[in-house]
Design a protein around this nucleic acid. Structure first.
Lengths: 350, 350
DNA sequence: GTGAAAGCGCTAACAC
DNA sequence: GTGTTAGCGCTTTCAC
């Protein structure tokens, strides 16, 4: 904005803290209204006046207060995003896509991780009061909270979470990809499966499991009950230990995400089991490690998820600003892609 | 705060948008001052009055405006953080540590990625105007901008970046760990080294290179000139291709971070070179993939970096609020740890 | 082209 | 214990 001229200049006069528009006006010998105009639309002010204002701004090192401005304008020029956690590459990538797109649209980004806190409601509501629009990911707050915000707070876009009335929703394809993955494994000849992950813990996982179970059932194979575990390497490792102790061992282990699969891989190493010879293994997300260890997985467009959410939010905010009609809630499902590597078994080199 | 009772309630009366403290006061039959008191220090208000206020708050679904509150209080209750990028696990982990600690201290977090934009100054200054304290990481903005903010804006804590007058600094140990790494490799018997990464592009890398070069020189080995490359897998891959074309091949390749090393590993696979037989390889950071591919590296306390910065910032903010004396700038170097795995060569099983 | 003044929604003296 | 009122720093009619 204004004060990037004599950067290493003054800090005297008004004791530096809080150089207000009044000080600038006084120094320039004009009214605060003129200063405001000169700053936000120089065309409205006479050449000479503007020069004086600019000089005063530079000399006083003036930076308009965002708070004052926002209060007067009735907007924050900021967006928020709520995510369950930041552990693992998935959320970081989504966040990256979101921040990038939001910044391009000239908006600051506020983040809030709920990391399984008992009741993040208060924090989410607080966040809602700081932004012009809010993205809510996965299992972070209850539907009624989302609905309440969407109804009487800023617009909300849901990410990787089932739709709620009044909010747009962006997700990645889960069910069809799950089915495709299952069919691929069936093609390898496997008939005994295990599923590691908690469908109840995440809408995404629920979708993946549904697709997998459906495809297996269609092939006359009884879908495995999910072996519930958290979303990280340690949980996967532990779940695998449980699994490997059972009397009949599965031929293929399908995991809710890549990190769980990596935990399984660790456990197999401990037990002297070779992947894929002794056990086929698949993950989900296609994080960097998956590529380096040859893990078969399903790639999600993580950055795109974030970027799409940012753009949709922007639409809604504009809609409101221009007091246009509020369009109906939108839904978008971004495509995912099966990535076959060596962990699911041998393939003909073609 | 107030309005989490009848969540799915009203949205009428004041057209839902902007239920102010005046509306609550009117409905409760009291003054706005009383409403304010009832909300922020119930003890100051008579039992019966408070009940009426609370009822009004609930019925109107009132949520105090952050903007109004912040303007009156003269604080944002928010912290900011500026980072070069969010690609790769490193920054995400630091951010995680920061957000977590900040949230525990009751502060919201604003993020800003500069991702190599030409001049992020304006954005950083804008951010500075939205927060009570700011963390600035690595190579994002010039020193004079940092100094200007620290002098006449909110307190600043520097992260993974050389000290600037007026700001605290938190970094991870680089030089000593670099030396230790180099000595370890010398212990393997290697004498021909390569260094992949750009010391000029990051203070961290500069420190690592300095430590490595020093230790090599001490051992009578001429330090390699850095083969400059960016901080990601692709860059590492490309740099490795250049390197492997040279007439004399190094015995050990030391990389500025893990992702560069992973790129080298890829390139070696393409060239049919085995690690560590044909080439020893090391990274830096100890990201998840490093563990799974057996990469020797140096572990950084990434979350701790973020958490420490958050706490220091909190100290400074409190200092200012309580108009206490401003203590002298602090500096902290968090310890790092050499993690030896198979990529640097065979070790005696002990 | 410029100034005066009315807010934006809240907090905190200061009275009563 | 409660009400009045003066800001907090800016934007934006409405006059001149």
């Amino acid at each position: 904005m204004g004060w990037y001229g004599p950067l290493v200049a003054m800090k005297a006069l008004t004791s530096t803290r809080g150089v207000t528009i009044y000080a600038v006006a006084e120094r320039a010998g004009v009214s605060i209204a003129t200063v405001s105009r000169a700053l936000r639309d120089p065309g409205l002010v006479a050449e000479a006046t503007r020069a004086r204002v600019e000089a005063a701004v530079a000399e006083l090192n003036f930076m308009p207060s965002r708070l004052g401005r926002s209060l007067a304008e009735g907007r924050h020029a900021a967006n928020g995003i709520v995510f369950p956690d930041l552990i693992g590459p998935y959320y970081a990538e989504v966040l990256l896509g979101y921040e990038e797109a939001a910044a391009d649209l000239g908006r600051s980004v506020l983040i809030l991780g709920t990391r399984g806190r008992a009741d993040p409601t208060a924090q989410v509501l607080d966040l809602a009061g700081r932004v012009d629009g809010l993205v809510v990911m996965g299992q972070t707050v209850a539907d009624d909270v989302v609905a309440a915000i969407a109804a009487s707070g800023p617009p909300v876009v849901l990410l990787a979470r089932p739709p709620v009335a009044g909010a747009d929703t962006v997700t990645a394809e889960n069910e069809a990809a799950g089915a495709e993955l299952a069919r691929h494994l069936l093609g390898h000849g496997y008939r005994r499966f295990a599923f590691l992950g908690d469908p109840a813990g995440s809408p995404d996982v629920a979708g993946r499991y549904a697709g997998i179970a459906g495809a297996l059932a269609d092939a006359g194979v009884r879908p495995p009950a999910p072996l519930r575990c958290a979303f990280d390497v340690t949980a996967g490792h532990e779940a695998a230990v449980t699994l490997l102790k059972r009397r009949t061992r599965p031929q293929a282990v399908i995991c809710a995400n890549d990190e769980v699969a990596l935990g399984v891989q660790e456990a197999c190493a401990d037990y002297g089991l070779d992947i894929p010879t002794d056990l086929a293994l698949t993950g989900w997300d296609d994080v960097m490690t998956a590529r380096f260890v040859g893990l078969t997985t399903v790639r999600q467009p993580m950055r795109d998820l974030g970027a799409t959410a940012a753009r949709w939010l922007h639409d809604r905010i504009k809609e409101r600003t221009e007091s246009a009609e509020t369009g109906p809630a939108r839904t978008k499902v971004l495509p995912t892609q099966l990535v076959v590597r060596r962990s699911c078994g041998p393939h003909d080199p073609d």
